[in-house]
Design a protein around this nucleic acid. Sequence first.
DNA 1: AAGTATCATCGTAATATTGCAATATATAAT
DNA 2: ATTATATATTGCAATATTACGATGATACTT
Lengths: 108, 108
Amino acid sequence: MGLTKTDLFTEEQNEIANMAKVLAHPARIAILQYLIKSEQCINSHLVDELGLAQATISQHLKELKNIGLIQGNIEGKAMNYCINTENWNAFKNALGFFFESIETKKCC
Amino acid sequence: MGLTKTDLFTEEQNEIANMAKVLAHPARIAILQYLIKSEQCINSHLVDELGLAQATISQHLKELKNIGLIQGNIEGKAMNYCINTENWNAFKNALGFFFESIETKKCC
DNA sequence: AAGTATCATCGTAATATTGCAATATATAAT
DNA sequence: ATTATATATTGCAATATTACGATGATACTT
């Protein structure tokens, strides 16, 4: 079916899954790493850097922007994307909280 | 096309994406949270807990097992799944490292 | 042995994601 | 105004993911 039954799960569970989904593609990881490294960039740089078509990269950027991990500012005919630090930290904390929630106990 | 071009990216980028992909479904988050809470469980408990079909849950458990986040031990006719603490920590560190890699700088 | 319980696998249907060419839009340069 | 540059959007083809019924495999029960 391909249709996730989100109504079966808590809001928290759906949110964590949605955050993870945005990170679930190497191109988006590469974009984020490039943004982190260069502090800012424009789409055209990424086309050379990643080797994907311009349309594809634009699509990945859109997803990153939708979830709030990056933000874009128009600069002439170019587009300056950069990390949204506030949301980046929110992501880090949410996923960090999830991973910390385990108390190391014995198991089977 | 639906086919990720993994050869364009570094091994690290593909690994992070693959880790995120496993977390990118609320059912798998729910399973992990349930495992954390109850220390162990069997498939049949999860069917009651989650409201998904047994086949579906078995499929999600397989993905979690493949990536190493959980491990299963046969116990009679039941199956004891539990968190693989070692790999759990590896996940936590890898994603943590990724999120820490940013130095808070000014931006656009 | 026959029946029951638990979990995995297979086959299939439906939706989602990825990728790109073509096109649209907007600004800068000439 | 026309052309060039940079990015977004649209439409489409192909693969991936999700979900589940049916079936298979295994072990316990009687």
